[in-house]
Design a protein around this nucleic acid. Structure first.
Lengths: 200, 200, 200, 200
DNA sequence: CATGAATGAGACTTCATTCAT
DNA sequence: TATGAATGAAGTCTCATTCAT
């Protein structure tokens, strides 16, 4: 029974995995449920056994992954002391997430944002949670005198996350593959740019 | 004849305007051509008289507006001398564009810029043109010693545009209306953040 | 006034001519009124000035031409004495019609027959008129003892017209152009086959 | 499982059957897919479950039936010895096909054979296969001295098939029902006319 | 759990026809 | 006469979802 339960869970994962590949390749709206089923190697009725709708699979994808993101931010906040290090840890987590599974990140960044305009408004709150955590880090750094107060924490979070997302978007839409060195560079440059600015 | 020609052109604009409202409200994929026609107060088929497809209307919307953007960036580069002022002018142009017609900017950012994924790959090059112009501004500032060289111009452009887009995205998905003061603040903070960084 | 009336008539002919080319190339159902207008070099509203509908243009095409056909058959019947010569004259008229304007004949044979299934049932009677004339020729030949009576005149007409039509259909669907010699051969062979049979 | 597989196949046949009735009644271009679905008593989408397009259903109809035709011609060629008997067998097959399912034959002749013009160019080669087989029969009869050589086998095939098609076309567009006697008469007269000619 | 046949609402697009100019 | 903008009904095809097996 444990085995069958595991098997069931695995099939669910297979479908979710397939959804990532398909959404990444074709975009959410252009993907058919049958495409997901094909990619997963299952009959397409089965998708409905595990998910109530196509949208639900995107929701699940996002929510599962975003939970990790929030955790990672919280951990970064907990472990490090300097705000700069915290931001670096967060940037590193996101960049490494992309390195590890670029398609998943593509779906989360490109498709969820767009979907937020129609059916996934609920996720906005989750996304804002991340902003708030980052803003919290900035706010603390300001209290400690490490960051200046001219820029509000909320705006700072916007800038930080905006840069990270833009870097990933660049990679996503680039035809050229991204090398390991670029990943490491990106982590460093993100923090450097945000913390010190272009005038430095 | 001049009158009728003008009338024809006007009808085209009416439809384009309607498309903006509808795409902004429902998102491109969820918008029906009949929604556009209804919003424009014209018959269904007239949309197809002026545009070969629903997508073409979005393309037109984007291209027309993006051309303004490229012009504005070029002008900012030509008029000002300090890179900081140039960036401010660009940020101001984009923010004011949003202030003037938030729905149009919403469509361009959410449905095109962030969706270049699937059907708008054609526009990618246009988008990159903007990046290149901004990178050019940064590069010159580096040569003149105003900006430091640790951050590549390309990355700087990413950071700048990413922040601007993120600010707009925030407004787009915010339920609260944005006041004039916030617009002005945003312009200042964008430049301040990018040029001086959080540590200041 | 006479001049303008002539001009008007000419425009009508231009449109009719264009319809032939377009129907021949694309088939009636796949042809748009605008295709006809384009081919004629006129605005497509003008087509409706001369013809009440797209179907009406096909009707006109057919009726005008078929009148010639009936005349030709009647003449052949009047001029010649031997049934064989009459049939040869008719075959020659049809083959020469094709030689002179293959597209027109294509439209009449291919499109009208198909249309007879839907909107052009009226033309069937006209077509039968031709059959009746040919049957009349055969009947007289039987009375004169030139043709045997085993085959009814109606059936004979079917066979004759069927062969002629099939020969034309062959040319119509052939990719290779047809040479003058083949036209002459066809006329001879049609009559020879019908009159003497394969066993000869 | 065998049962369900059979059921699936049966549904396909039901749709194909319905398509015959509908195409025969309204003509291919005037038939809507929904008409077929209604006639078949199935939901709209099921037609597309079995056939990729409306045209594909017509193609299937034609190809399945034409294969029988080719077989029948080949068999006629194999079984009989006298060319006359072979031609009679072929004529009998086609006439009996019409007697058995006039609507199917109507669709094949009016919508496909005579319409190879536009969308059915693919079928041209299949149609020519039939001509070639018949021409082969004639050629052999010529070598054996049963048929004279003045008429080329290709032309003879044209004449034979043209007559058969014309006879059927006559019935198709006739309002009066055709009696059994006429069917038998037709078979005989077709062969008699083709083999011996009108002059006898 | 798993399948895939069946459903049917709904979308885009076409185009014959009308009509104001 | 001539134009082509405007109309809107109609048609094909898609595909999310259901459900019997």
């Amino acid at each position: 029974m444990a085995a069958s339960s595991t098997a069931a869970t695995e099939k669910r994962r297979v479908i979710l995995e397939a959804a990532v590949r398909v959404f990444a390749r074709q975009g959410f709206h252009t993907s058919r449920v049958s495409d997901i089923a094909d990619q997963a190697g299952v009959a397409y009725g089965l998708v409905y056994h595990y998910f109530p709708s196509k949208e639900a699979s995107l929701d699940t994808l996002f929510l599962e992954r975003w939970e990790f993101m929030l955790q990672a931010i919280a951990e970064a906040d907990a472990i490090h002391t300097a705000a700069r290090d915290k931001l670096h840890a967060i940037a590193a987590f996101i960049v490494d997430s992309y390195r590890h599974d670029p398609e998943l990140m593509k779906v989360i960044i490109v498709e969820v944002t767009r979907a937020a305009n129609t059916f996934a408004r609920t996720h906005l709150e989750k996304i804002r949670d991340a902003y708030r955590l980052i803003a919290g880090i900035v706010a603390q750094a300001q209290r400690e005198g490490a960051f200046r107060r001219e820029i509000t924490p909320e705006f700072a979070a916007l800038a930080f996350y905006g840069l990270v997302e833009q870097v990933l978007t660049g990679w996503i839409f680039d035809s050229a593959p991204v090398g390991d060195e670029q990943f490491e560079n990106a982590k460093r440059m993100i923090v450097e740019t945000i913390c010190r600015g272009l005038e430095g």
